[in-house]
């Protein structure tokens, strides 16, 4: 996932530079793999400061959470691929931004979509409450980020909520969790882990005949899911805020063209939605930089106030819904795209 995202970041920067950069200024990209080592992420951040970088394109929950107080103090915009809802509160994390549907909105959207579309087709519809259970790594801030919001939404809609199943992000065998769920007989499961662990859970649920539908947050729902889970993934619903790689949406032709041009050694069939989401991060940041530069203020605060927070229904393309930021709400989107 990280590799495909990193390739997409570099390719999108080439695209921005080839198209005039930031109002004529070329972007210089420094790119490092911190290997999930938080101390290294902090060290690289210090280097970026020394190099006078105007903004940072970060990665996951680890680096984003560790650096949130520091980027707020230093006023350096940090556009990451961690989409926790709590990063959307300008009072707490003003310089953390992202171009995606936040995890809480994704989970609420998934549960609501299933309730509206799938539940009425079930034989027990109207006879009893629908039953939902959640599979995630309880010890992971990433996996558990949207569970509270998901349960609140399920309660509002009148679900019966079953026992949480702690599924490791590294799980390849989840039979004990599936067997534990059989007594509860869920109609639907919400998965918030990454794709390998989600695929393992779907496979075991299918093999053990659990009979539940599946709802999957963005990191578990990519091109690799059907490859890893096979038939067990059929009918699963997921939230993909961006288009899958290669789909016919605005700018995808450029995504594919730059993938071919700059990384011809990586077969296109191995590219994924994570490249597309990287493009969304770069193009969103580039737009903020252009607006701030036009206003004559490329300081961190200028990029935030005169760049990001001036975006209202900004269309990036790539299948992502229009983006709006305000001074009081950094949720870029209030709608979840469910497929």
């Amino acid at each position: 996932m990280g590799k495909d995202y990193a390739l997409g970041i570099a390719e999108a920067i080439h695209y921005v530079n080839d198209n005039g950069g930031i109002n004529g200024k070329q972007i210089k990209l420094y790119q490092f793999d911190y290997g999930y080592r938080i101390p290294e992420a902090l060290t690289k951040y210090n280097l970026f400061k020394r190099l006078k970088c105007v903004a940072i394109l970060g990665w996951g929950t680890g680096d984003t959470e560790a650096l949130a107080p520091t980027v707020a103090r230093d006023k350096i915009p940090y556009v990451s691929a961690s989409y926790s809802g709590h990063l959307c509160k300008p009072a707490k994390t003003p310089y953390n931004l992202f171009f995606a549907t936040d995890y809480s909105t994704q989970s609420r959207g998934l549960i609501t979509a299933w309730f509206d579309k799938k539940w009425p087709q079930k034989p027990d519809y109207g006879k009893r409450k629908p039953r939902i259970a959640m599979c995630y790594m309880t010890a992971s801030a990433f996996s558990s980020a949207s569970i509270k919001a998901a349960k609140e939404q399920a309660e509002i809609l009148g679900f019966e909520i079953g026992p949480d199943q702690s599924v490791s992000l590294f799980a390849i065998d989840t039979k004990s969790q599936i067997l534990a769920l059989k007594e509860f007989k869920p109609d639907v499961l919400l998965h918030t882990n990454t794709v390998m662990s989600v695929a393992a859970t779907l496979r075991d649920a299918y093999a053990l005949g659990l009979g539940a539908d599946h709802l999957i947050k963005c990191w578990g729902y990519d091109e690799n899911l059907p490859k890893l889970a096979g038939k067990a993934a059929e009918g699963a619903m997921g939230c993909a805020p961006w288009a899958f790689f290669g789909l016919d949406v605005p700018l995808m032709d450029k995504v594919v063209e730059y993938a071919k041009k700059y990384n011809p050694g990586v077969p296109l069939e191995k590219r994924t939605i994570h490249t597309v989401q990287a493009w969304a991060s770069v193009l969103g940041l580039a737009e903020a930089l252009k607006r701030a530069d036009k206003a004559g203020d490329l300081s961190g605060e200028g990029i935030l106030r005169k760049g990001f927070e001036t975006m209202k229904d900004f269309e990036i393309g790539l299948g992502i819904a229009p983006v709006t930021y305000t001074a009081t709400d950094h949720r870029g989107q209030s709608q979840a795209k469910i497929t």
Partner: peptide, 12 residues
């Protein structure tokens, strides 16, 4: 780092 990389993507 390699442990995490293997566990997240290489389990199967």
């Amino acid at each position: 780092q390699s442990l995490l990389s293997l566990l997240v993507t290489g389990g199967f």
